[in-house]
C-alpha cells in the first residue's frame, strides 16, 4: 500500500524528490489541481475518457485519505472502500454543482469530508475529535490497491427495473457501446441512455440508504 505519495503515475524516484523539496511539493499540488480540474471540465463537456481518468485518479487519493482517517476510529479498508465509492457516486451525480470558475480540489474535498462526517455520525462515532485537516491532505493521498467494498453491485442491480438492469449490465459491465446495447435490448439509443442514467441514480440512492446484502 503506497500512501501519501504525489501523482500515482510518476516514477518512484521522482516522488522522493517531491518529498524532499517543499517547493516541488507545492508545485505538484498545484499541477494535480490543474490536472484534476481539466479532467473534470473535459468530463463535464462529455468526454467519457477524461471522466474515467478523473474517477480513477480520485479513487486513489480518496482511498489513501479515508484509510488514514478511519484508522483513528479502528475502521478497516472495507469501510474506507465504502466511502471511496460513496464519494465517487457523489462526484458523479452532483457534478452539475461544480462551478468551472472555482478550483476543483476544495469542491471534492468538501464532499469527501462531508461523506466522512456523515459516515461517522451514521455509525455513532464521536467526531468531536476529528482533527482539523485541509484539502492538501486529500490531494496528497494516493492509494492504488482497492479492496471490495461492502456494497454488492449484483444485489443493488437486482433491485432495479429489469430493463434498466439489462441496459446497465450490457453497457457498464460488458463494455458494450450505447448502439450495441440498443441493438441487443431492442431499445432505442436514447432510451438506453435514459435508463442507464436512471439506474445509476437509483444505485446512488441505494448506496445512500446503506443497503447491504
Amino acid at each position: 500500500m503506497q500512501s501519501a505519495s504525489h501523482g500515482f503515475d510518476r516514477p518512484l524516484d521522482e516522488q522522493w524528490d517531491v518529498h524532499e523539496n517543499g517547493r516541488a511539493s507545492a508545485m505538484t499540488d498545484q499541477s494535480s489541481e490543474h490536472e484534476l480540474r481539466s479532467l473534470m471540465c473535459a468530463g463535464l463537456d462529455g468526454d467519457a475518457d477524461a471522466h474515467h481518468r478523473l474517477l480513477v485518479d480520485l479513487s486513489h487519493r480518496l482511498r489513501g485519505y479515508f484509510r488514514s482517517r478511519l484508522l483513528q476510529f479502528h475502521r478497516g479498508p472495507t469501510e474506507a472502500e465504502d466511502l471511496v465509492q460513496e464519494v465517487l457516486l457523489a462526484v458523479h451525480t452532483r457534478r452539475d454543482t461544480y462551478d468551472r470558475s472555482q478550483p476543483f480540489t476544495p469542491w471534492v474535498y468538501a464532499i469527501a469530508r462531508y461523506k466522512l462526517l456523515d459516515y461517522l455520525r451514521r455509525t455513532k462515532v464521536s467526531f468531536r475529535d476529528i482533527p482539523a485537516d485541509d484539502a492538501e491532505h486529500l490531494i496528497a493521498q494516493n492509494d492504488v490497491d482497492g479492496v471490495e467494498s461492502a456494497y454488492d453491485l449484483d444485489y443493488l442491480l437486482a433491485t432495479l427495473q429489469p430493463k434498466a438492469r439489462r441496459a446497465i449490465r450490457y453497457m457498464k459491465l460488458q463494455g458494450l457501446s450505447v448502439r450495441e446495447t440498443a441493438a441487443k435490448t431492442g431499445m432505442s439509443e436514447s432510451a438506453v441512455k435514459v435508463s442507464v442514467h436512471r439506474a445509476l441514480k437509483a444505485l446512488s440512492a441505494l448506496v445512500k440508504k446503506g443497503n447491504k446484502p
Partner: peptide, 23 residues
C-alpha cells in the same frame, strides 16, 4: 462491489453536463 467496476459504470454515463441553475 469492486471500485473499478463502479468507475466503469459511472464513466459510461456521460454526456455534456450543464451547471445546475441554482441561482
Amino acid at each position: 462491489m469492486n471500485t473499478a467496476r463502479l468507475i466503469e459504470a459511472l464513466s459510461a454515463d456521460v454526456g455534456p453536463v450543464r451547471r445546475a441553475p441554482l441561482a
